[in-house]
Simulated scan of single mutants.
Amino acid sequence: MKICRGVCVALCVGVGLGLGAPVVLAQASGAVATVPVLAPVVYVSDFELDAASVTADQNPVANARHLAGSLLPRPFAHHDDPQAHARQIVEQMADTLVADLRKAGVDARRLPAGATLPAQGWLVRGVFLDVDEGNRLRRSMVGVGAGAIEIDLAIAVDDLAKQAPAPLYQVIETHSSESKPGAGAAIALNPYVAAAKFVLARGDQRLSVKRAAGEVSDAVIARVNPAR
């Protein structure tokens, strides 16, 4: 049997927190070469945002306006479906965050809802929050109101290679008779979750979400690659 006497290369791959950390290749010939380690993948999941339950308005003037709007051709009718509005914000946040991370050189990918978590990489999660009169955090709900909405955004960046992600928050109060219609459940954030506040303006929603996504992107990069 013929034996091939080639040069054997020993490759040791270490996964660290930094992006682009070099790996040393030790060759039998004594030469040493370095190649960059592939950057860890950052998976962006859909942030949590609920839609408020919308009940029929008992105001006859408002009902008349709503009926008139439904009779108008679609380009002229005013449609404000809370479910669609909430989904629009979630989609925009995820897409903008992925785009911002990629611009910064991070291998960012959107994680579809319900998908199995990868064994390695980083997971970015978040939840939109409101602060009520009692200074309690509640899961934010998008309704049919007008004007600017002040929203808190809580995020977590988890290293999937270390452990399974823990819950972002714990529910401490469900809906009660004292809660306003459309109010979310009061919650307590877990200690490792970071929170930031931004204003979601109805007339400038895209720009508001873009700015918030930029802040989240900076926080993710600082967590995944502290040396940058």
Rank of each mutant, 00 (worst) to 15 (best):
T34F: 14
T34H: 13
P36V: 06
V37S: 12
V37K: 06
L38R: 10
L38K: 08
L38P: 15
A39S: 12
A39T: 12
A39M: 08
A39P: 05
P40E: 00
P40W: 00
V41T: 09
V41H: 02
V42M: 06
V42D: 01
V42P: 00
Y43E: 01
Y43A: 04
S45L: 09
D46E: 07
F47N: 02
L49W: 01
L49A: 02
L49P: 03
D50R: 10
A51M: 03
A51W: 02
A51P: 00
S53A: 15
S53V: 14
S53H: 08
V54G: 03
V54P: 00
V54I: 13
T55W: 05
T55A: 07
T55D: 05
T55E: 07
A56E: 11
N59F: 04
N59A: 15
A62G: 04
N63I: 01
A64Y: 00
R65I: 14
H66T: 11
H66F: 08
L67Q: 08
A68R: 08
G69E: 13
G69D: 15
G69S: 15
L71M: 13
L71R: 09
L71Q: 14
L72H: 13
L72V: 11
L72C: 12
F76A: 14
A77K: 13
H78N: 11
H78E: 11
H78R: 15
H78W: 15
H79V: 15
P82A: 09
P82V: 05
Q83F: 12
Q83N: 11
A84K: 08
A84I: 14
H85S: 12
H85N: 07
A86N: 07
A86Q: 03
R87E: 07
Q88A: 13
I89Q: 00
Q92R: 15
Q92H: 15
M93A: 11
M93H: 05
A94L: 10
D95W: 09
D95R: 10
D95Y: 08
T96R: 10
L97F: 02
L97D: 03
D100G: 06
D100I: 02
R102Q: 11
K103Q: 09
K103A: 11
A104R: 12
A104H: 00
A104N: 04
A108I: 03
A108V: 09
A108P: 03
R109I: 02
R109M: 07
R110D: 03
R110Q: 08
L111H: 01
L111V: 04
L111N: 02
P112L: 01
A113E: 09
G114H: 11
G114V: 10
A115F: 04
A115T: 05
T116M: 12
T116R: 06
T116V: 11
L117R: 06
L117P: 03
P118D: 00
P118G: 05
P118L: 00
A119S: 14
A119K: 13
Q120K: 09
Q120M: 08
Q120E: 10
G121T: 01
G121H: 05
G121E: 03
W122G: 02
L123P: 03
L123C: 06
